[in-house]
């Protein structure tokens, strides 16, 4: 591996030599953005309405709008009005290594701020509150988690919902047969085609998937919350200057009330591509988080012990 690292070091060094000199006082992500002239925004394919692809395959959503505000702030701060924005698709499983490796500078999607993840990455203030439920076909007769005994359940690899469901399965000894999948759309299709009976996911994403299905009425979202999942934009750890910029931008949106407009746009209006309206009023939890912006994380195993 030694030679290969050298090759990479050479590439990285070439990049540094080309960098403008005035960026010396900056560190971390801001320096990276200044040096490279590009900010890399990580997005998801199917986290409706936070971060997903429209029918032109462009990433859009509530999280993407908030990230656009952050990009504006970066442009102003670095005095780089022509800063290039690059969108990089990530999945639940790739997001953390991709962020740490500098392939993206922030992830704008549906990532739960968990204490476990805080060992590796940092989070902006919470911008949505949700939790794990399951989606099933109405015809399956599944009414609650305990009906899943011995059944097949699909999960998206790398999610907190996977852990919450597995912790529940271990505790209640349900003997669930788990099958992994790459992203939420693929997991949902596993339920749609009958390969799995249930898919544990944050309820808001389940409502989004249901609304976008061919026959939304075939599905229902059921169960008590297995976990609490506060969503936030994910950033690299130990980068106080960039975190402050992001925190200030997000809190600014909260203080000015602009967040309410964004919320209404994505959760209480028709959204692309199919013009569905999620009709999902703001929860008390989110109202509290907007009043007191915070980046407190939750435990790893949902409401179970682990």
């Amino acid at each position: 591996m030694f030679r290969i690292s050298h090759l990479f070091a050479a590439i990285a060094a070439a990049g540094l030599l080309a960098a403008p000199v005035q960026a010396q006082e900056l560190t971390g992500t801001l320096k990276k953005i200044k040096d490279t002239g590009v900010v890399k925004v990580g997005h998801r394919d199917a986290s409706v309405p936070f971060s997903y692809l429209d029918d032109q395959q462009k990433p859009i959503g509530y999280g993407m709008d908030i990230c656009a505000k952050i990009v504006d702030r970066i442009k102003a701060e670095l005095k780089m009005p022509n800063l290039k924005v690059e969108f990089v698709p990530v999945t639940s499983q790739t997001r953390i290594p991709v962020l740490m490796g500098g392939n993206i500078d922030m992830e704008c999607g549906s990532t739960t701020n968990s204490v476990e993840r805080q060992k590796q990455v940092a989070f902006a203030p919470t911008y949505f509150m949700t939790g794990t439920k399951i989606i099933v076909k109405k015809s399956s007769g599944i009414k609650g988690y305990d009906d899943l005994k011995g059944k097949t359940v699909v999960f998206t690899q790398g999610t907190t919902n996977e852990r919450a469901m597995k912790a529940y399965n271990d505790e209640k000894k349900l003997g669930i047969n788990f099958i992994p999948s790459k992203d939420h759309a693929e997991s949902f299709l596993a339920v749609d085609t009958g390969r799995a009976v249930a898919f544990p996911m944050d309820d808001i994403l389940l409502y989004g998937l249901k609304a976008g299905a061919k026959n939304p009425n075939d599905f229902e979202v059921i169960g008590e919350f297995l976990s609490d999942d506060p969503y936030a934009i994910m950033l690299r750890k130990d980068d106080p200057a960039f975190k402050k910029l992001v925190d200030d931008t997000v809190s600014g949106l909260y203080k000015s009330g602009e967040i309410n407009k964004l919320y209404t746009k994505w959760f209480e209006s028709k959204i692309p591509p199919k013009g569905i309206n999620l009709n999902f009023p703001m929860s008390d939890g989110l109202k509290a988080a907007i009043k007191n912006p915070n980046d407190t994380g939750v435990g790893a195993c949902g409401k179970m012990k682990c």
Partner: peptide, 29 residues
């Protein structure tokens, strides 16, 4: 290449950030 090499370089070169080169270039290399 996609996940680990950028982090390795950061450790070796002592930069303040990891210089990821994106999925296309990582895949190309």
């Amino acid at each position: 290449f996609y996940f680990l090499v950028p982090i390795a370089i950061k450790h070796i070169s002592g930069d303040s950030y990891a210089q990821g080169i994106g999925p296309f270039h990582s895949a190309l290399i």
